[in-house]
Design a protein around this nucleic acid. Structure first.
Lengths: 338, 338
DNA sequence: CTGAAAGCGCTTACAG
DNA sequence: CTGAAAGCGCTTACAG
């Protein structure tokens, strides 16, 4: 059961190994008839080029890396990453690129993994998520000259291709919608404050609240987990002048917030309106279903993969703006009961 | 910025490349002093062995493969897979094995991916999930002699190492608990009926219901998605003689079922008790929190990875029984309101 | 204990 | 259009 090599094909076709390589890779240097014959033989014997040999002789590793820096307990229920991953796959699979995954505990570990992967030539590029202010990974990517694409930056020009979306615009739309419904006390439960896109959202939230005369814009920082989402929600609802609407930075915290409201005997949306970021099936799973800022997460992932493949091919690309999330009203938002 | 090779180390240490290789891999053939010197240099210049070269010269690819055969929309919210993945990682990372992921649409595609990966020598083994009756993947694994470990089989001896858990025992415990609370009309919403562990659960459910004299054990088949979970739940609750308790084969469907009950004006647990399989943070996220059959999913994954590494090392291992899921009572179960 | 060399399976200039 | 050969960076028998 030895796995077939180009030498086997060459022997059966009566040509050199070089010719087989050219034929298989669609390079010029073999006649059309020979190419056809070689391809037929390869097909017949179930040939797959040894990826190690290929990578070693200067070609690509044909794999890209993704590190996931979240504790296991949150990774599991945040639909966001799996949505991204299936988007990557749609694009990578088409080009038979593999996706190599590693779960890490900190950005420092991510850096180590990047170094190791790149040193081992195990991957041709990486997809970077959760960009932070002064992110430790960026100088390393630059130093290693590791092709990369960053997801979730602020859109500011940098040294690495970014896929970003106008989160500020999206949150502005959400606030305007709530105000139109009659809300004036609108609070927000945010994701990790270090993340760049959290900062973008916070800034936009503050601005729109100010411009609409809503007074102080209250953002309670959390970390995307259900536990922190619950805690932040309780903190907001316990006060005397409690908000009539809360915007959450992800769907998991919004669902947790809904549970807290129910547990406190508040009706949603009667006493409290809820808006979730990152619409996912989770938002439609609960009762009432959650109004959400929707975007095509797997499309976003596919776009990122496409840009990364371009970067690997040496095509320098600037930042790419993805679709802005749009509001999908569902059962969790309504005029406040006065 | 050329990446360093063993030749660079050999030159700096004044030894041959062979000596460097022995030193780096902990093989005998170099003196302790030389080994130390070589390791220090490798450390200093940030050497990582080129994985392609290593794999090509007969060593391992140091990667294992995992295919995920679920539509993107469900993958995203099912905590199960991410839990498994983080378990794999805990074990693989420690041995610096990489995890290669591919999302596929069907078992037939999984077979193709296995063939390609193995042909390319891209991976040393695969983790197989969602075992079905007469699974098309099994003969291929055997034919290719591809090291593998199967998750979620029935525990019957086969040609491939299995990690399995006693799902029958777990569901029996859940039914007994509900009966002890006073329930007699207990229904179940199952996962995909083709899957072996679904069949194991169904059989055990039927048996325990019969042995406790509960009459016909009603299982409505679904597919793990929220949509089907809702549909199945509606179907069960619409009838005249509706169940007072429902056991769901995963957490996502249980959450959907809870929403349906709420939407129909039924109180949980007053009018309906709910038990979810696969306890995950999702179960604690909703209100009321869901009673669940818990197990350590990422521990399960770690165990699977460990067995796979053993299989790759040629150690033949029999089936491994993992911890049986145990009942974690929460707010969604109570005596039925009569 | 160490060095020189073959070989893994490809790709790719270089000759014919 | 095709063949013969070098080379990618390791590992591993084989001599010394």
């Amino acid at each position: 059961m030895k796995r077939p090599t180009i030498a086997d094909i060459a022997r059966r076709a009566g040509v050199s190994k070089g010719a087989v390589s050219y034929a298989l890779n669609g390079q010029p240097g073999v006649s059309e008839a020979t190419r056809k014959r070689i391809l037929a033989i390869a097909q017949e014997i179930g040939f797959n080029a040894n990826s190690a040999a290929r990578a070693l002789s200067g070609a690509r590793a044909r794999a890209v890396g993704l590190t996931l820096c979240r504790p296991a307990r949150i990774l599991g229920i945040e639909p966001w990453f799996m949505g991204l991953i299936s988007g990557f796959e749609a694009e990578l699979g088409a080009q038979s690129y593999a996706l190599t995954l590693q779960v890490v505990a900190s950005p420092e570990q991510e850096v180590e993994v990047y170094r190791r992967w790149w040193g081992e030539r195990r991957i041709d590029g990486v997809i970077v998520t959760d960009l932070r202010e002064n992110d430790v990974r960026m100088p390393v990517l630059q130093q290693l000259q590791l092709p990369a694409v960053v997801i979730g930056g602020s859109g500011e020009a940098g040294t690495v291709t970014q896929i970003w979306s106008d989160d500020g615009g999206a949150i502005t739309e959400a606030v305007r919608y709530l105000v139109a419904l009659g809300h004036s006390r609108i609070a927000r439960v945010s994701g990790v404050p270090d993340l760049l896109h959290t900062q973008v959202r916070t800034k936009a939230f503050n601005e729109v609240c100010a411009s609409l005369g809503l007074g102080e814009a209250l953002t309670v920082p959390a970390d995307y987990t259900g536990e922190e989402g619950s805690r932040a929600t309780r903190r907001l609802l316990i006060g005397g002048d409690r908000p009539t609407a809360i915007i959450y930075d992800n769907d998991v915290m919004a669902v947790a917030g809904l549970a807290v409201a129910q547990e406190m005997g508040l009706s949603v949306p009667g006493d409290l309106s809820i808006v979730a970021w990152d619409d996912s099936p989770l938002c439609s799973l609960v009762h009432p279903s959650l109004t959400a800022l929707s975007r095509d997460v797997s499309g976003y992932g596919a776009q990122a993969a496409r840009e990364l493949l371009n970067a690997i091919d040496g095509k320098k690309v600037g930042n790419v703006k993805a679709q802005t999330a749009h509001l999908t009203p569902r059962g969790s938002t309504a005029p406040p009961r006065s």
